[in-house]
Design a protein around this nucleic acid. Structure first.
Length: 418
RNA sequence: CGGGGUGUAGUACAACGGUAGUAUGCAUGCUUUGGGAGCAUGAGACCCGGGUUCAAUUCCCGGCACCCCGACCA
């Protein structure tokens, strides 16, 4: 990708109104644009990150047998009145169509997926089953805030699993938990599994929490073992002994990046989703649901992985692998050579499988290029200039590191492949 | 939804009861090219409604929007 053609705009100015770090960095770097409170446009750079996060999620969901579908965001009122949630979900966006017909914009999809599954599940032979979707969810939050962390429209992956009995649900639930941990690890964030309220379905659900001062949840976590609980349900206070291992329980603020529930028969009962077992007897299907927010992950990474110059993207979700900067001078012959070598390098890196953003702009000063490069946070920066070409070299710097080094032009692919 | 704050060029800010200035960005030209370069020229703004006043961007009231705290968060 040529940077001269990229749809973006960076800004040096920091708005004093926009206080959340993730929003400031992502807006300044041209990754997102805010349309209104809690609603954002993803620009090319931001969308690339979002899509990479989604790709990781898809891979891990597929690996535990999830099949991707796409349900509508526009849903009929009847499905919600069946479960009583038309009235009980305060954040449900409701709208009226022609003829007075009422709809809701999906804030979650149990009401849609359960009747859908009913059309397909008849026998124990159809179980277990898991389907998921990645879609924008709508929640009429009384107060959208903290940039991408709490939006009114936000991307969500929701997986729903269907089982013949509780034991099978339990087993799958643990598998999903492991898959979630893999997802967060690949996204470069460390998530703690935290026991949280199970709502009206179960004693507990499990949240995946990332410790950071900007989090809005408060969790207790053991200094020794992996036990953790959301403060909302904890029957003890910070400093008390861990109920599991006796270690000390610490308190911390955290961002919730995922939440998994055992719904059991809550929705299958409401929609009469049942199956015939081996003996020809009717049973209710046991369900689980598993949510994860790709856009919230993106915001979380910006929140925890940055320095004073900009974002530092983890390798697997970075918008590009390599940011190639060409620094031009006043000698047009030399510039021609710089451009030729840079273009050649871009092409050969792309052939080697790297995604390259090439800053090919001739009339832009070096300072601007370096500044934007730091702001973008692409993991590897390469610089070609008259100076480096004099040594048949290119300068290599890792965004997260401090040192830049010169590497011979004919060895750079090998160097990056390490 | 309760409390607080803020609304002025694309962006970030300033001033002012008599229609507005700086920086940056943008356009054009020349110069410049290893850490957000220089000079010149140009285009570009007072959230909406009402009130007070000879006169309101400025003061008052209401609305709306955004930000922060709290409540809320299947």
């Amino acid at each position: 990708m040529l940077q001269s053609k990229l749809f973006y705009k960076t800004s040096k100015d920091i708005s004093l109104e926009e206080k959340s770090v993730n929003a400031q960095l992502l807006i300044r770097a041209g990754f997102v644009d805010k349309l209104m409170a809690g609603v954002y446009t993803f620009l090319p750079l931001g969308l690339r990150v979002l899509e990479k996060i989604k790709k990781i999620i898809r891979e891990e969901m597929n690996a535990i047998g999830g099949q991707e579908i796409l349900m509508p965001a526009l849903t009929p009122k009847e499905n919600w009145t069946t479960t009583g949630r038309w009235d009980s979900i305060d954040v449900l966006f409701k709208l009226k169509g022609s003829g007075g017909k009422e709809y809701a914009l999906g804030s979650t999809h149990e009401e849609i997926v359960t009747p859908l599954a009913k059309k397909i599940i008849n026998s124990y032979k159809d179980l277990p089953l898991a389907v998921y979707q990645i879609q924008d969810k709508f929640r009429d939050e009384p107060r959208a805030k903290s940039g991408l962390l709490r939006g009114r429209e936000f991307s969500m992956k929701d997986l729903y699993s269907f089982h013949a009995d509780l034991a099978d649900l339990d087993q799958y639930y643990e598998k999903a938990k492991e898959a979630y941990l893999k997802i967060f690890k690949r996204c470069g964030i460390e998530a703690i599994v935290v026991e949280a309220s199970g709502g009206t379905f179960s004693k507990y659900s499990h949240e995946f929490q990332v410790l950071t001062e900007s989090g809005e949840d408060i969790i207790f976590y053991c200094e020794k073992c992996s036990y953790a609980q959301n403060k909302e349900i904890a029957g003890y206070k910070a400093g008390d002994k861990c109920p599991k291992c006796g270690g000390k329980m610490l308190e911390g603020k955290a961002i919730e990046v995922g939440n998994i529930f055992k719904l059991k028969n809550k929705f299958s009962e409401a929609f009469d989703l049942n199956f015939l077992d081996k003996d020809g007897k009717k049973n209710l299907v046991m369900m689980g649901c598993y949510g994860i927010g790709p856009s919230r992950i993106l915001g979380t990474v910006a929140e925890i992985s940055h320095d004073e110059n900009g974002i530092i993207w983890p390798v697997e979700i970075a918008p590009f692998d390599v940011h190639l900067l060409a620094l031009f001078g006043k000698d047009s012959k030399v510039n021609e050579k710089i451009n030729k070598e840079s273009s050649r390098l871009q092409e050969s890196l792309q052939k080697a499988g790297f995604e390259v953003l090439y800053d090919d702009r001739e009339s832009v000063s070096a300072g601007v290029k370096f500044g934007e490069s730091d702001l973008f946070g692409i993991p590897t920066r390469l610089v070609i200039s008259e100076k480096t070409l004099a040594k048949d070299s290119v300068e290599l710097k890792i965004r997260a590191g401090n040192e830049a080094e010169l590497v011979k032009l004919n060895k750079i692919e090998k160097e990056l492949g390490k």
